[in-house]
Design a protein around this nucleic acid. Structure first.
Lengths: 135, 135
DNA sequence: TTACTTGCAAACGGTTTGCATCGAG
DNA sequence: CTCGATGCAAACCGTTTGCAAGTAA
């Protein structure tokens, strides 16, 4: 049932290019940005391929994904599969990672007492960062 | 330049309908959901009008907005008195309300130590309810 | 009456998909 | 050779916009 088939993932030129571009970029970038960057570097890669690879990498837990206010998905190379949340400034868009053991604990308690299974949660925190709040 | 013209905002039937629908719904709902709800209630309102009103209300600070994983904008009446979260079955759509004092406490601690201000958070938990999980 | 609001439909922009071709294993 | 990967273009879907008709003030 829960086939652990980790997906073959052939190492193509394009796949490597996407991984490298993400490794070099510390922040979040959109699929379109990534595509433009690769093209600018002379790497001939299709947009659909970029999306495809991003999906694979997200499924594999290699990437963090957030949504920009404009509705674009923003990707960033993620430190292992450690689950965390984000504190985002609604003014400047700056994102900080948060670790929330209390939340995780609470969530799993709720889940077990409710009888729900295969549960996932998402916690979004937005506010004004110190810089924007004082401005 | 920074004209503070707060926009006249005529009180039309449609505007009132949107406000009321949002007031009755404690959680987040998408523009499309809102539109469908209004239509179902017999309220003849255009989708573009719903979007228009939502934008006005967001600009006025009356609404909280977050992006769902699917990329849809989700709106919620801001400063909702009874803040709570939802546990939703991704199969049958059943929703249970959750109260999370631990989460609220944790969130406010994080917020105060981070220096962020005017912070709001949303926690969504999804899974399979007992009925759907056993089915 | 004035000019803001409505609402249809078409335009938009990000993302996904269909399918013929390419190429890693 | 085989079957997954690629990539163009078209389909999708949520959202925005153009503009003529409606209506609050």
């Amino acid at each position: 049932m829960t086939s652990e088939t980790p997906a073959p993932q052939r190492m193509t030129r394009q796949r490597k290019a996407v991984e490298e571009a993400l490794s070099k970029n510390k922040g979040f970038c959109s699929a379109q940005d990534l595509h433009a960057t690769l093209r600018a570097q002379g790497n001939r890669v299709g947009l659909a391929t970029v999306y495809s690879q991003l999906r694979v990498m997200v499924d594999a837990g290699m990437l963090d994904v957030i949504r920009s206010d404009a509705g674009e998905a923003m990707y960033r190379r993620c430190g292992a599969g450690d689950h965390h949340h984000h504190l985002r400034c609604r003014s400047c868009g700056n994102v900080e990672e948060l670790h929330a053991p209390a939340v995780e604990t609470w969530a799993s308690e709720v889940v077990s007492s409710s009888g729900y299974r295969d549960v996932s949660h998402s916690l979004e925190i937005t506010g004004l960062c110190p810089a924007c709040a004082s401005g």
